[in-house]
């Protein structure tokens, strides 16, 4: 592949989850800075997971805050400190799903149903200006079908998300998450090749 530094070494994953566990352990042991660190390392992860539920920025912020308050209230429910990251993302997804559904009545048609038929709308500006690499990468990701964009965003930021819950949230059969993820990654690979950023 050429050029860019955009491809990072495997995962945000291990380091993020390790730091989360460390912060949780220090907090439970009585160090308040442990809680600060846990919040600092996991808030960005929660943000991206929650935003994949089509919530507005302010609704997403509320969901993230609800998640942190739930952690403080229900800390005693967490027996395995190494699972803290997963507990947080799961709690955030449940809340995001609940909030998204509560407001879904207002959403007219499932974008998903239209997506295959219509080219993704782009502003004239977007079309012209896509000169820099970042824009081209964005176009590749943004051009994916809705379901792929959401699924890949969640998978990219989470550490081994629970497929059963994910399936329910995305309204897909459990067994199809793995294959769908594979197809979405394949689509993204092709789209990236077409940008010329990778070959």
């Amino acid at each position: 592949m050429t050029g860019i530094g955009a491809v990072r070494p495997a995962g945000p994953a291990n380091e993020v989850w390790q730091r989360a566990t460390d912060g949780f352990n220090r907090w439970v042991a009585g160090e308040s800075s442990g809680l600060d660190d846990l919040v600092a390392v996991m808030t960005p992860v929660l943000w991206h997971v929650v935003r994949s539920y089509r919530l507005s920025e302010s609704a997403a912020e509320d969901v993230v805050q609800t998640t942190w308050l739930a952690l403080v209230r229900r800390r005693s429910a967490i027996l395995d400190a190494t699972a803290i990251g997963g507990w947080l993302t799961t709690t955030a997804r449940r809340e995001a799903w609940r909030v998204a559904n509560a407001t879904a009545a207002a959403t007219p048609a499932d974008e998903e149903e239209l997506a295959p038929m219509l080219p993704r709308q782009r502003s004239a500006e977007d079309a012209v200006v896509q000169q820099d690499e970042g824009d081209r990468l964005w176009a590749a990701v943004d051009g994916l079908p809705e379901r792929c964009r959401r699924l890949l965003r969640i998978v990219a930021f989470e550490n081994r998300p629970d497929y059963r819950e994910l399936a329910a949230d995305l309204d897909m059969p459990v067994g199809s998450i793995g294959p769908t993820r594979g197809r979405c990654l394949a689509k993204l690979r092709v789209a990236l090749m077409q940008t010329g950023e990778y070959r």
Partner: peptide, 16 residues
Amino acid sequence: LSREDLLGVVRDVWER
């Protein structure tokens, strides 16, 4: 592009 490379691109793009 490996799976991890692709997911890394997804993370970068959304972070931006």
